[in-house]
Simulated assay, not measured.
Amino acid sequence: MDSSDVKDDLQHVLYTKEQIDTRIAELAAEIDRDYAGRDILLVGVLKGAVMVVADIARALHSHVAMDWMAVSSYGSGTQSSGVVRILKDLDTDLIDKHVLIVEDIIDSGLTLSWLRSNLASRGPASIEICTLLRKPDAAKVELPVKYVGYDIPNEFVIGYGLDFAEKYRNLDFIGTLAPHVYE
């Protein structure tokens, strides 16, 4: 899907497919440099991070393992509920692994803070966070994020894995959802 398919639901495009591809390649180069000689376990947070994990994994120049978690703190609205539930846990034992949590977006940071603590308690050699998008104005907790694609305004965004009520994930860009869609 592209912007012409959702033009009535879109306020504006924040990042094009080309801009995202370029930034993903830059993040992958940083990750390759920082993890040289070490195996990485990419932990994707479902469902939103699927696109980011896939593209980062393809852009890396080293072998990586991948695993997935599904956690929920969102309803069908645009604000975090603050309640975290594990819907799917990891299949991989984290003891002595170099874990890189990969997210699509960090809003309040509450869910990711909880997730990071949960994974850290499982004995990894290291644990870091990579996110494509971060909303600094929405942060409610201090969170150490090593790799950030873009800092964005506190607006509701869709595309490239990000959804509203399970729609718009398959857009090839990131855009701002028009308020009439979610109000």
Rank of each mutant, 00 (worst) to 15 (best):
G48H: 06
E128P: 01
D32I: 08
V148K: 13
S113P: 01
E30Y: 13
N118E: 14
V71D: 00
S3V: 01
N118Y: 15
V84H: 01
L27C: 05
T111P: 13
W68T: 08
G161I: 13
T176G: 05
H63Q: 14
M69Q: 13
F164S: 03
W114C: 09
V141W: 09
D151H: 14
H180A: 13
Y150W: 15
K140A: 14
V102I: 15
I86R: 13
H61F: 02
T16R: 07
R33E: 14
D163Y: 10
V43E: 09
E26T: 04
A125L: 03
K88N: 15
T92M: 06
P153C: 07
V6M: 10
A139K: 12
E18F: 07
L177G: 01
Y35P: 05
R122N: 04
G77P: 07
D172R: 10
K47D: 07
T176V: 15
I95Y: 11
V99D: 02
L42R: 05
V13S: 09
Q79V: 15
V84C: 02
L162T: 14
A178W: 07
I174R: 08
L41V: 00
L162Y: 01
V145I: 14
G123P: 02
L112P: 02
L10K: 08
D32G: 05
R33H: 12
D8F: 12
G82Q: 09
W114T: 04
D163F: 08
A65H: 12
V141T: 09
G44C: 09
L100Y: 00
Y35C: 04
E103Y: 05
N170R: 13
G37S: 06
S3P: 03
G149T: 12
T78W: 04
T131N: 10
R85V: 11
L133A: 11
E18G: 15
K47Q: 11
A139R: 15
A178C: 00
I20R: 08
K135S: 11
R116I: 03
V99C: 03
L119R: 06
G123Q: 06
A54S: 15
K17H: 04
S73W: 07
T22D: 15
L177Y: 10
P179A: 05
V53H: 08
V83E: 13
T22H: 14
D163K: 15
I86E: 02
Y74Q: 06
D107K: 11
R134A: 08
N118S: 15
